[in-house]
Design a protein around this nucleic acid. Structure first.
Lengths: 191, 191
DNA sequence: AGGCAAATCAGACGATCGTCTGACACCGAG
DNA sequence: CTCGGTGTCAGACGATCGTCTGATTTGCCT
């Protein structure tokens, strides 16, 4: 019921990429049609507005992130390992992050200036990370409230590193900051 | 020569506010005309394109930041005091930062997806902070290269805190992170 | 083969975008 | 009083935006 046709999936995949690389407002239906190989008349059969299309894109990303977090939780045998895996995931996306920023963070920045409903959908993706990281910090023995503070601090530091690296187009900056974040992490996770 | 007329200044002031609160691409000449009380036909007498208007806005912000940094440098009697003053400045802007994000950071995020020339003008404002903070860390005895790393790390942490606080509309988050940054700062600045 | 809903596609629609033109108001110099 | 330049303003321009309609094709069911 969610992915009725193949072209619907192609539209979502193209939109996901374009919204990320060029921004939501800055991506037109003409761009989407060209990228997806689907005439724009067809878009309104699947999504009755551009906002609804972004909703579907966020839904897809939400599902992907949730699946990835499940995998990590299953593979990491200690909370420390889980936290480090998060940082390593950011590292593995270095090139795209330097070129386009954080897919969730930059979208939140763009939507934050208007459009409360879509902003909530984007924040839901961020919440997945917050909750998963909070669980890891809790396992480390931090009381619940402080665990969430640490989770958001970790995310804030990652966001900041990405913003600066993106602003300066500086991949070394991102790598260096992520290393520093890892060092900070091992202080929070006494072995 | 730079501010030939009063209406030119009104246009820049309005544009500066609207570009910040609503975003650059999302602010139309109709919006600007309504906010500045200047008919849009007049805009092209002062600025021959919207991009040039943004250039003037960035120039104004650049001048303001440079002036503020000069004042701080004169008032702060120790490098520690200067660094703390930077954090306090961010604190004093809490409400706007939570509502709209960082004026420089969010603009860099928006422009980073396209428009290389304007991105450079925005980055010039960020560079003012980088250079000023680098000078303070150098005064603390850090070698030049490491001082710049610390300056960018401080800015990255501030950016990240603002992005998260903006995403969640959470002023307490911003205040808490800034306090943590201050604590981190005093570790880098052994008295 | 025939029928019918699901899916596809081309193109028109009004609105709005950034840009530009040309006429008009103001005002000190001659 | 006249002139010329600086600044002001209303409105038109083509382009492009997101949206929508109607006709057409596809593919499954009997």
């Amino acid at each position: 019921m969610s992915d009725r046709t193949e072209s619907r999936g192609r539209i979502i995949a193209s939109a996901r990429r374009l919204f990320y690389e060029a921004g939501y407002e800055n991506t037109s239906y003409a761009d989407l049609a060209a990228a997806a190989g689907v005439p724009k008349g067809n878009f309104y059969y699947h999504f009755k507005s551009k906002d609804e299309l972004l909703g579907a894109v966020l839904e897809a990303r939400h599902a992907d992130v949730a699946a990835a977090l499940d995998t990590w939780a299953a593979q990491a045998r200690t909370p420390q390992e889980g936290l480090r895996r998060f940082v390593r995931m950011v590292m593995s996306e270095e090139e795209a992050l330097v070129a386009y920023g954080c897919p969730v963070g930059s979208l939140l920045t763009e939507l934050g200036k208007h459009r409360d409903d879509l902003r909530e959908a984007a924040r839901a993706v961020m919440d997945l990370y917050v909750e998963w990281l909070t669980a890891r910090f809790t396992e480390l023995g931090h009381p619940a409230r402080h665990a969430e503070v640490l989770a958001k601090r970790l995310l804030a530091r990652a966001q900041g590193a990405i913003v600066m690296a993106h602003a300066y187009g500086d991949q070394a900056l991102l790598r260096r900051e992520l290393k520093d974040i890892e060092a900070w992490l091992s202080e929070q996770a006494p072995t």
